[in-house]
Structure formats: structure tokens, C-alpha cells
Design a protein around this nucleic acid. Structure first.
Lengths: 150, 150
DNA sequence: GCTGAAAACCTCAGGAC
DNA sequence: GTCCTGAGGTTTTCAGC
């Protein structure tokens, strides 16, 4: 299990992975050696999965979020595997969830504009058999964080 | 504007920010100096926003995603600012969008279990006046990536 | 724009307490 | 756990193409 210092280290790293071991050590009141050892352990045990760069949606002209609500009448394994592989292969799909309730799947899709979404949509429905697809556009992203609540 | 090499560099970094300048340079067929300069420029111009560590949902016992669909009858600036600040202050809210269509806002909330969601829900509705809130639980996360389609 | 090399810096691992 | 040390690697700068 994690103690308060480990949690503190994780909280710092999930906000900024460029922090040097030195500055993390300072902030959690440790010297570099034990702090470095803790980070190694957290990485080895899988608490830290990866370190990534977050890019600018604006700069890259990918300003549109579309939520796609999917209903299907297919529930066999073969179809589900095909569906999962198709989603993996589509880079515009940044999130996909199997849902409870009346909607079977929920996707978040990132595209440049409505035309780009239309192209994506056509490709999606051509590759998978879906009973019902409805799309909802986000007007504004108010919050987006990769930081988990610790 | 970005050339193919810049895009390639961004694609590599958004998958793995631990890559050394050396190894990126190799993969895009440059030497370290120009590659390093490009990365600096990409950072300075805001293409690269930040570098973060992604933590394990499983390890941290935060396995549940809840989508919260919100309708409101308040549409004035004051209410919206209060709403935005409240969402910012709630770490369980990892994403929030203002939507088109019949739902006004869509949140993704990360919690440990249903009880934790109930606590979050009570806090949310106690802090903001909302006309209608409906929650939908994800059974399974099929895809989650921070990588943008380039 | 690029190359190549040198300097500065930090990480990483070890030993002593 | 701290403190210190040093090797090794990485980042960064600089002259030259």
C-alpha cells in the first residue's frame, strides 16, 4: 500500500512529469536517494503507467469533441472483438466505454470540424454493424485532466 | 506550420515522453541538435502543452467511470462561472463539456465505487442548482488515450 | 536549415553512517 | 532513512557547413 509520501509523489508527477527527482524530493521532504527509490518502486509496481506529452488541441486544429452513442443488436463475442479492434484502429476515437442502460457504447471522438466528423462517421458505420448511432457535439470543453483524484 | 518531421516528433512524444532526444532523432532521421531545437520550438509555440505521468486506475482503486448528464434552467453568466469553478474544484470530475442538444452538460467522473459516486453526487447537487441530473455507469473502458489523431 | 563536438547538468547506483 | 561520491548518460550550447 501507499503512504502519504507516495501519494504526494504521484500527485506531483501526474501534474508535471518533467519535475526532477531533486525538486520532488524537496517538495515531499526527502533527499533524492529515497525519493528516487520510491519513484522506481511506483513505476515497477505499475502505479505509474507511462509518461506522455499532452498536445494542444487548438494548435493542431482538432477543436471538436463529438460524443457518439451507440446501440447494437449484436452481442456475440465475435462482433465485440471486431468492434474493439475497429475502435483501436481509429485514432479519432480517444475514449470508448461499454455502458449500462439504454445506450450500449459511448465514444468520444476528436476531429477538426463537422466535415471531418462526417468522414469518420461514414467510415465507422461502414466497418461495423450498428443498430443505432446518435452523435452529440460538444460546444465547449470546460475541463479536461488526466490527473486522477487521489 | 508543421512539416512531416515535426508531426512525427509530436506523434512519438504523445505516446512516450520518456524518449531521449537521441532516440527521437534516430527515429526521425536527424541528429540530436536539430531534433532538440525542433522540440524546443514545438514547446515554445505551445504544440506541446505539458508532460504528465499517467497513473494506474486499477492500482489506485479508481475503477469506475460515471457519465453525468446535466440539464439546467439557469443560463446566466454568474451561474455558469459558479458551475465552472465548482467543476474545477472537484477532482473526481476529469472531463466536462457544454453540449448541444437536449443535455446541457456532460461530465465524466472517476470514482472508486458506487458509494463514492453517491458521495460525489450529493456534494455536486448541494453546491449547484441543477434542473435535472442523470448518471450512467460505464461497465468497461474499452479505449482511453491521450494521443490526438495527427 | 544541418552536423559534430564539447560543456553543463542530472540521473542513477553504491558505500558509509 | 541521510549524506556524499562518482560514473554514465542526457541536455544544451557553440562553432562551422
Amino acid at each position: 500500500m501507499l503512504d502519504a509520501i507516495d501519494k504526494h509523489i504521484l500527485a506531483l508527477l501526474q501534474r508535471d512529469a518533467t519535475l526532477s527527482v531533486q525538486s520532488i524530493a524537496d517538495q515531499v521532504n526527502l533527499t533524492t536517494s529515497p525519493c528516487w527509490r520510491r519513484i522506481q518502486t511506483l513505476e515497477a509496481e505499475g502505479y505509474i503507467q507511462r509518461r506522455v506529452a499532452l498536445l494542444s488541441r487548438d494548435k493542431l486544429d482538432l477543436g471538436v469533441d463529438v460524443f457518439v452513442f451507440i446501440r447494437t443488436d449484436q452481442h456475440n463475442d465475435e462482433w465485440m472483438n471486431h468492434f474493439a479492434r475497429t475502435l483501436d484502429a481509429l485514432p479519432e476515437v480517444v475514449e470508448a466505454y461499454r455502458m449500462s442502460g439504454d445506450v450500449d457504447y459511448l465514444l468520444r471522438v476528436v476531429v477538426a470540424d463537422i466535415k471531418a466528423y462526417d468522414r469518420f462517421y461514414k467510415r465507422l458505420v461502414s466497418e461495423i454493424k450498428l443498430a443505432d448511432v446518435s452523435s452529440s457535439f460538444a460546444m465547449e470543453s470546460m475541463k479536461y485532466t488526466t490527473a486522477l483524484p487521489l
